[in-house]
């Protein structure tokens, strides 16, 4: 039952794809082939990320993380979060367990937000592709607009979420296995 509940989203999606096959066979095959290629991509991307997270969890002392990315880490912490987020691969939902692991190690909330923001928009490995397919101007403009947006979003969210709400998020992180 527990396993069933865990896979409920997948089961619903799989049933919907079955329905899609009944309505339009071509679309059904297209869905399956997209799922195949993205699964392959994910299976390739995930192992090193989780191995690195595991190593960080065991080897990097909380104090070190706090010093570089926690309260009082200042601009260095922000820059580090930005670099880690921009360099890593994977869709935004891969950053969620990474953020949880960082929160457990005492990384500051604003740095968590910068990490999430950078992870979603400033992917260094994709910039070259973006400029060849959409044009250098497009890529540079998007980057120039999105970096301040990440910072503004971080600022707004730290202002709107109250201290006790942020504390609750950190408490929740402690209970996650991710």
């Amino acid at each position: 039952m527990k396993t069933f509940k865990k896979y409920i989203i997948f089961i619903i999606a799989a049933i919907l794809i079955g329905v899609l096959f009944l309505i339009n066979k071509d679309m059904g095959f297209k869905a399956v082939s997209t799922i195949k290629s993205s699964s392959k991509e994910m299976i390739l991307i995930l192992p090193p990320i989780f191995i690195l997270l595991g190593l960080m969890d065991v080897w990097v002392p909380r104090d070190t993380m706090v010093k570089f990315m926690g309260e009082g880490s200042g601009i260095i912490g922000g820059i580090l979060s930005f670099i880690i987020g921009s360099a890593a691969a994977g869709p935004l939902y891969v950053v969620f367990p990474v953020a949880i692991a960082f929160m457990k190690k005492g990384v500051k909330f604003s740095n968590i937000l910068i990490l999430i923001g950078a992870w979603s928009t400033t992917k260094i490995p994709m910039l070259l592709f973006e400029s060849t397919s959409l044009g250098l101007n497009f890529m540079l403009t998007r980057l120039a607009v999105n970096i301040p947006i990440i910072l503004i979003m971080t600022f707004v969210m730290t202002k709107i979420l109250k201290d006790d709400e942020i504390a609750a998020i950190y408490e929740g992180a402690k209970e996650q296995e991710g």
Partner: peptide, 21 residues
Amino acid sequence: SFENIFPQMLGMITFIGLALA
């Protein structure tokens, strides 16, 4: 951690495949 996130990720990938089709 991988085990914890895998079912949801599989669900997401399947939904994305459906949406893109």
